[in-house]
Nucleic acid binder design. Structure first.
Length: 434
RNA sequence: GUCCGGAUGGUGUAGUGGCCCAUCAUGAAAGCCUGUCGAGCUUUCGACCCGGGUUCGAAUCCCGGUCCGGGCGCCA
């Protein structure tokens, strides 16, 4: 049995006279003596419950108007068209029931009248998410996932799950979280990269995975997390250019889906979402260095990874999504395919939003000998990759793919200040609870 | 990790040596009020991160610590 018949947002003045049952939280009350207004909040909005002393009787009126803020309430009543009420209707209750009272004082103000620091909000995240603008971001995140899954389905991509508990630091470099796994040491996986490539060798042809990744890096910024959700794609018989087109379509499609299906949430956030136009600009790494060199003080050498300052400069001058392509092979991972005629440059790319990197991808090395050579060049030991390399000895299709950060996509889409605003229970350098 | 800034009622803040048994808003408690919609009005409640020091006197200055924010670094 579901207790409510309607959400607040589903009710309008045309429903005058209809019996409804609403369930939610007591957002606030305004008590005028002989009449009082109880505002009920659920995930679709607010509804005014009008309490009239003469209609309810003295006792019922007294108890209804003294409900503490944020208590869980159930209201059975009649919709009444009322021009004086917000949104043109109010609920005249037959019964107001407190299903569970809230203690006072509250850890923060869910009506958003008083500002609240991020740290305080995260400590009481359950209460923070009651704030409509916070909830709106997570509902939009869900819509983004719905859009992406739909897009993958249309393109005949198979959804898979790969292990998050792995045996070794499979890619070298990045710090992994060690865990205890019975009598063995194990790690939380930093990326599904090696597994999705192995699935190309398995003949699955096109796979995607949406799942958590873990990085033990000590970064401490507004755009990094130690646990994140990655959207990964890998496609056989495709090159880097092909998967870049898939990526830009996926991103633009997510924007379009949100613009069309999340009007209420966008209104709550005060956003006029603009769908980025396709295709995104393609800029090579060398061109990017040239652009940055025009700016005084740029001291990037060819072969350096782009520093934050250069990245920001490029973002500001371009002002929309763009791809950075043709990176130096030396700064991309071993599985990135170098160009045949000039191997110092590789078929790796990053998808950039003016504020930050959103995704990175590449055409992969699919030749066994070349892959072993690249692993050695990076100073890694091929023996540690045997489980992966094995898949390259028995026929590996050429393939390409990418990984896209979900929270960064949502953060940049909604212009959120901090990536923690795009994660329900974020894990960062210092936070492990809630 | 590093540089800079910060920590004052439940929440957000004002307060640069005495004018502070600490400001304002929100909140909470009690009361008045029949159309509020950030309702209004009256009364009340509730705080200087921890430890040490300087000083006649410290929320305020100094030292150490803890925690938080921002920048950078790190980011296969």
């Amino acid at each position: 049995m579901i207790l409510r018949t309607h959400y607040s947002g589903d009710i309008n003045a045309e429903m005058d006279g209809k019996e409804v049952t609403l369930a939610g939280f007591a957002h606030e009350t305004r008590d005028l003596g002989g009449i009082a207004f109880l505002v009920l909040r659920d995930r679709k909005g607010l509804a005014q419950i009008t309490l009239v002393k003469k209609l309810l009787g003295k006792e019922a009126f007294k108890s209804a108007r003294s409900i503490s803020r944020e208590s869980v309430v159930l209201v059975k009543g009649t919709v009444k068209a009322e021009p004086k009420a917000p949104r043109g209707f109010e609920i005249l209750p037959g019964e107001v029931q407190v299903l569970n009272p809230a203690q006072v004082p509250l850890p923060l103000d869910p009506t958003e009248k008083v500002e609240c620091e991020l740290d305080t909000r995260l400590d009481a995240r359950f209460m923070d998410i009651r704030r409509p603008s916070v909830l709106a971001a997570f509902e939009i995140e869900s819509a983004v996932l719905e859009s992406l899954r739909g897009f993958f389905r249309e393109n005949a991509v198979t959804e898979v799950f790969t292990p998050k508990i792995v045996a070794a630091a499979t890619e070298g470099g990045t710090d992994l979280f060690p865990i205890s796994y019975f009598e063995k040491e194990a790690f939380l996986n930093q990326s599904p990269q090696l597994y999705k490539q192995m699935l190309m060798g398995a003949g699955m042809d096109r796979v995607f995975e949406i799942g958590p990744i873990f990085r033990a890096e000590e970064h401490d910024t507004r755009r990094h997390l130690n646990e994140a959700v990655s959207i990964d794609l890998e496609v056989s018989f495709a090159d880097d250019k092909a998967v870049m087109e898939i990526l830009e379509q996926a991103v633009a499609g997510a924007y379009r889906h949100v613009a069309e299906n999340c009007r209420y949430q966008l209104e709550v956030l005060g956003l006029d979402l603009k769908v980025p136009s396709l295709p995104f600009r393609r800029i090579t790494y060398s061109e990017a260095l040239g652009l940055a060199a025009d700016k005084a003080g740029a001291k990037m050498q060819w072969g350096d990874d782009l520093d934050t300052e250069t990245e920001r400069f490029l973002g500001q001058s371009i002002g929309e999504h763009y791809f950075l392509t043709d990176w130096p092979s030396s700064i991309k991972p071993y599985y990135t395919l170098p160009y045949e005629d000039h191997p110092e440059v590789c078929r790796g790319f990053d998808l950039m939003h003016p504020r930050m990197e959103l995704a990175s991808g590449a055409q992969r090395v699919h030749d066994y000998e070349q892959l072993v050579g690249r692993i050695k060049e990076k100073g890694l030991d091929p023996d540690g990759f045997e489980f992966y390399l094995k898949a390259f000895r028995y026929g590996m299709p050429p393939h390409a793919g990418w990984g896209l950060g979900l929270s960064r996509l949502v953060m940049t889409m909604l212009n959120l200040e901090n990536i923690r605003d795009a994660v329900i229970f974020p894990r960062d350098r210092k936070r492990l609870v809630p």
